[in-house]
Amino acid sequence: MSSSVDAVKAASSALTFQDLLFRLQRFWAERGCVLQQPYDVEVGAGTMAPETFLRVLSAKPYRVGYAQPSRRPADGRYGENPNRLFKHTQFQLVLKPPPVNVQELYLQSLEAIGIDLLKHDLKFEEDNWEWPAGGAWGVGWQVMLDGLEITQFTYFQQCGGQDLDPICAELTYGLERIAAFIQDVDSIYDIVWARDPDTGVEVTYGDVRLEEELQFSVYNFEYADVPKLWEHFNAFEAEGKALLEQAGKLLTDETASPKDKKRFPLLAAYELALKCSNLFNLLDARGAVSVTERVGVIGRIRALAVGVAKAYALQKAA
């Protein structure tokens, strides 16, 4: 048994968490991707950042990659569960249009982070993705490596309730899972985030993030002020709706100048939709959304997100 475990350790080249990200970024930068920084508003997934949600709406070819911290308040476990996090990191990649060899490129990216495919079992298993509040869905796979889901691979079909043309391929790498896999650790908190090249001193994922997981679990589940959250939600929604109303008038006004149309702040309206989405997730984690209310609240977020997407398409055409 010990020899096989040694083999495991020897086979994993044990990239640190940050090296893993560097390698992925470099790999995709070398294949023509723009490297973006994480979006600075709370999101539940990399898809929700405007670099995906809004970029995919236009016909213009675009390739972008970014690491997106993604908040799921209900998934918090006070830092006690070795596999679940309130905030995890997605390396999000959008290729528009998808190259014909997109799957082969993806496999090469795994090789680039030190995974020798000849020594692993890899499967593409059907998994279709949708974000109902964003009117977005696609078909694709979960990529399984030795029984572990490491990537969500989606061919986007619709976004903001609109058919995409061309479509894009979206690859979402679960960085913590992949790091735990290649470093062969049993807990996410034991992942080596960085290693000092001179001293060999290691900083772990727990060193960097455990406190945050604990405090945000406490906040999300215990302290978040429900009436205040609803107030925030209503305020952001009201501003978003007001912007969308103005956008609707301006963008359908044939006498308005293209310049006025282009400068209309739809990106800000979208941020307001994202704020609402995050507040909804917080309220949900607090158990403050009854099942009957749920559909209605999701509908309100959808009205904002889909409204922005529709207006954005009009703006691009202006």
Binding site: V8, K119, H120, D146
Partner: peptide
């Protein structure tokens, strides 16, 4: 599995699963 591997690969895959 959807592959065939040597003893080392088998140990790795068993361990991962």
């Amino acid at each position: 599995l959807n592959t065939e591997v040597d003893a080392e690969g088998e140990a790795i895959i068993r361990h991962g699963n």
